[in-house]
Design a protein around this nucleic acid. Structure first.
Lengths: 246, 246
DNA sequence: TGGCGGAGATAACATAGGTTGTGTTATTAC
DNA sequence: GTAATAACACAACCTATGTTATCTCCGCCA
């Protein structure tokens, strides 16, 4: 207890009482290992639980009739998976693991219990939902109004920034366990074009492709390429907290 | 009281006690008229209140450095605007009215109070947030992996389906106060291409362009063009309710 | 030890959709 | 009643990105 990933994540927003920490810890009672590439669920499966990510990476996606795939979001340690499905009987997107991972499942009704027990946690959960929305909004802007070059750079910088939340501090070099295919599916591009674009970025010494995954060499530089504005990742609970008592 | 738009919307999900109805009504204390094209806020403005839409249409958008614009969502009567900004001090997107409208503002902290007073309403709000996410997800899929033709059709059908929620029932003909420019900005296309696409759909008798706005002639037909799957609009609170008491 | 599948690289070619530019109406503003 | 503006239409041309097709490299496992 105490080093729980979810607790760490939530404390990023506000100091938690012991009772609240215990409540949160109870959501992480059942950590379980899953191996790379396992698919936790498909679109349309009954949606019965949320998961918190203790270790590893995952992504949510939608398969299209024509065989293509749209990736919607990528999850890293500290993230909560499945909030999107809160209001639905069935999952609106599929979920697959990108690496070997450790996840903790907690059943849907448990969330409502938490709402009842702690107004503060309730507010934090609501805030996370709003942050998830902000991320989707940003991805939409990315897809709708940016060039391939900007899309790739923007996506990579976002992942880097999101990792700073749990890693104490990310060096200017950073390794992401992503494939070019995943990038393509996330950004609405073809793999071939992602490859072309990637080639460009490599020549500019912004990224590199080691044996596996993607290595960011110059996050600042990528940020410039993407016109990245990080404000959509900078939540603030104070405005809410003043009124939330504990 | 009783005919409040927000109450009607919420009752779509679950029966409300009198106390809860009054609580909701209190959010609609201050209806105010706004005229077409007024901009309620810009990206970056302090985010202090939510609005419920009593009458009229609105849309949220993001202006890009290069002068283009990405529209993120369109709001119709019964919708709640601004939940996206819950966790942020500043608005993550701008907001503008599409028609003359009547909106009701309620300050952000009021939402937290509602959470505290009614667990049921708290759950419904959470559910609406998850629905908003599902809509964004669908828009993302639209932008990433569909042709212009499908994009336009899909977007139009979505609006039609969303209107069924408040209008008792929508005839097969339906008039939307949207411009082609708005469609373009929502779908990540150029106006010219939307126009081309629209032309096609007109020839197939699926839509029509009266003096102003867009007239849907054959929603079923459009649905087919778009491979539209409505499940992302069909929320269900029962799974949650069982445990939410009143 | 070899064969197989996934990820990456690259080339040649094809096209959906973007851009620019010019008109036509229909509204709105004075 | 005329100017200015917003929406729509359509033509000609252009380019970013998609498609198809090889080839290589590496890790995996039978």
């Amino acid at each position: 207890m105490g080093s729980s990933c979810i607790v760490k994540h939530f404390q990023h927003y506000a100091p938690l009482s012991v009772a609240e920490q215990e409540l949160l810890d109870s959501l992480e009672k059942s950590p379980k290992e899953y191996s790379k590439s396992t698919q936790l669920w498909s679109q349309g499966d009954p949606s019965e639980a949320f998961y918190s990510v203790k270790k590893g990476w995952a992504y949510s996606f939608r398969d299209m009739e024509d065989g293509s795939r749209q990736v919607l979001d990528v999850y890293v340690p500290g993230d909560i998976i499945g909030l999107r499905d809160f209001g639905f009987q069935r999952r609106v997107t599929g979920l697959k693991l990108l690496t070997n991972s450790v996840l903790c499942a907690f059943p849907k009704p448990r969330l409502t219990e938490v709402f009842a027990e702690s107004l503060l946690l309730c507010n934090i959960f609501f805030m996370i939902a709003s942050r998830d929305q902000a991320i989707l909004v940003e991805r939409l802007v990315n897809l709708g109004r940016r060039t391939a070059r900007e899309k790739v750079a923007h996506f990579l910088v976002e992942m880097a920034r999101r990792l700073e939340r749990t890693n104490t501090r990310v060096a200017n070099h950073l390794h992401l366990p992503l494939t070019q295919t995943l990038l393509a599916d996330a950004l609405g591009l073809s793999v071939v074009h992602v490859n072309r674009t990637f080639h460009e970025l490599k020549e500019e010494k912004l990224v590199e492709a080691p044996n596996s995954g993607i290595l960011l060499l110059d996050i600042e530089g990528l940020q410039k390429v993407a016109c990245f504005d990080p404000s959509y990742l900078e939540e603030d609970l104070d405005g809410v907290l003043k009124h939330a008592g504990t």
